[in-house]
Design a protein around this nucleic acid. Structure first.
Lengths: 266, 266
DNA sequence: AAGCTTGATTAACCTGGGTTATCGGTAGAA
DNA sequence: TTCTACCGATAACCCAGGTTAATCAAGCTT
């Protein structure tokens, strides 16, 4: 993987070393880049769904508008993420998607995914892994929403973003840009904007999180993780490179009739 | 599809007509059936994850235990569902799974899924569709937990189960078995058991839901849907048979080495 | 420089649902 | 038949977080 690689390729490489052919297939997903402005809506709930997007630059989020006028933000997309996988089995969008930042997106049709199924088992497996990881994120967010206090919710969210940004190598110390307004945070966490503000005030007093506009500083990330009761097994180390990397497992994938020694337990 | 077909095959057939080869591949997932008793735990969080299960009979649920001793139930599995897809990208279980009912499960190793990727694009696409549908269920549950009142939560859950059971053809009128205790419902909905009881009492007075032990009667399912602000687009009709059935897309899938109209650099 | 608009802060007040506790009904178990 | 366990119902009390509203700061227009 070299520096000119698109962030999609970087993202996929995170799971497994890719062949040149695989990279070529992935590059085809980014054939038609398009500039989009902050706040612009990529699609809305119930629009017809016939394509996916890769997000090349900027942040985006998916959301649902509720009957009572409120809104729930479902997930935050970072560069390298694929948007719209959720609707693979559906003909309508189940959620709207909008840009947080200015950014760049690339559309590609559903069909292209079937091409990938046809042509690369490695990419198929990675796609499946990505989908399963996304489900893990969603699950964690669900628990966050269902069971934790406002303090924990906010702490958890900030720490999760911190880790995701660390993973993509986009930051060094506990000091980063978080381009979400308090209202967007509230919509993400199932809180009111007012209470998000209260919670930030409390965090500032405790020296846990210092937020100024879109800039966040974490003097002690570990302390924050403790407040959130953060358990990173759904994010980090347990992504199983074992399964894909150079080894017998990867070979098993491309060469399905190998000896069947058992699954790779730790 | 005939009556002896396993419920996995019935489940997959819901998306697309299957070839005999595909059915054979699926049958291999159910080679080693095992009886399990109500309440038995299939696995726990952080167990090492090297296999999936199909659920042939009975109901099951996945859950997470939280730091404070409470517990969140993540999803309810019905016969025909595949359990453990969530962990495809992980080497550890992210959630425990336990049986609600007595039932029958069949283990199969991760590897078997890779075999499917190799051997059938149709099944690969269906698996992807199933994973995306599961994500849709999860998303809906997330919104339920984040944004709705206790009445709506319970109404929504009951109505969702009602629809899922309708789909599997397991019931006719608004009259079915719901083998969950109020405590399990509470853990599913992020409520206390006490409040679930209160809510059932309210529903009984309003004639919305009549529950006796594990038996539920819905005198007017539509009324319940209205209370829940239920929007079934994530469940029903929008599953896209279009995508798989008979058309060029399906053909491209099953006939993978066709003329390489591939690189559709349009 | 005088407006607007959007976001953030803080305070006062209120409520949905958590918590604890008690009690009754039903089902196996012995 | 009685014991024990579990499940469900109801009541009393309480608090985390929602709601409303007022105020302020920071960009923008013009």
């Amino acid at each position: 993987m070299n520096l000119q690689d698109s962030c999609i390729i970087r993202h996929f490489s995170h799971f497994c070393r890719l062949s040149e052919d695989d990279k070529q297939l992935l590059r085809r997903l980014e054939e038609s880049p398009e500039q989009v402005k902050a706040g612009s809506v990529l699609w809305q709930e119930e629009d017809s769904a016939s394509e996916f997007c890769t997000l090349s630059r900027g942040w985006a989020y998916s959301y649902r508008n509720l009957g009572d006028g409120s809104r729930q933000i479902l997930e935050i997309y970072l560069p390298g993420d694929i948007i719209g996988l959720r609707e693979f089995a559906f003909s309508q969008r189940l959620a709207g998607v909008a840009m947080i930042d200015d950014g760049v997106i690339c559309h590609f049709p559903h069909r292209r995914l079937l091409d990938i199924f046809n042509q690369s088992n490695t990419l198929t497996a990675i796609l499946f892994a990505i989908s399963s990881r996304q489900q893990a994120l969603l699950t964690e967010r669900l628990i966050n929403l269902a069971r934790r206090t406002a303090h924990q919710k906010l702490a958890h969210f900030i720490y999760e973003m911190y880790l995701r940004l660390l993973q993509t190598g986009a930051l060094s110390d506990g000091d980063f840009r978080l381009p979400l307004s308090q209202e967007q945070l509230a919509d993400t966490l199932g809180l009111s904007a007012v209470h998000v503000s209260r919670t930030f005030s409390a965090f500032r007093e405790q020296g846990l999180v210092l937020r100024d506009r879109h800039h966040v500083k974490l003097p002690d990330p570990e302390a924050l993780a403790r407040v959130a009761e953060f358990d990173d097994c759904y994010l980090n180390d347990s992504v199983r490179p074992i399964f894909f990397d150079g080894t017998e497992a990867a070979m098993r994938m491309t060469n399905s009739h190998s000896a069947d020694e058992g699954p790779v337990a730790k």
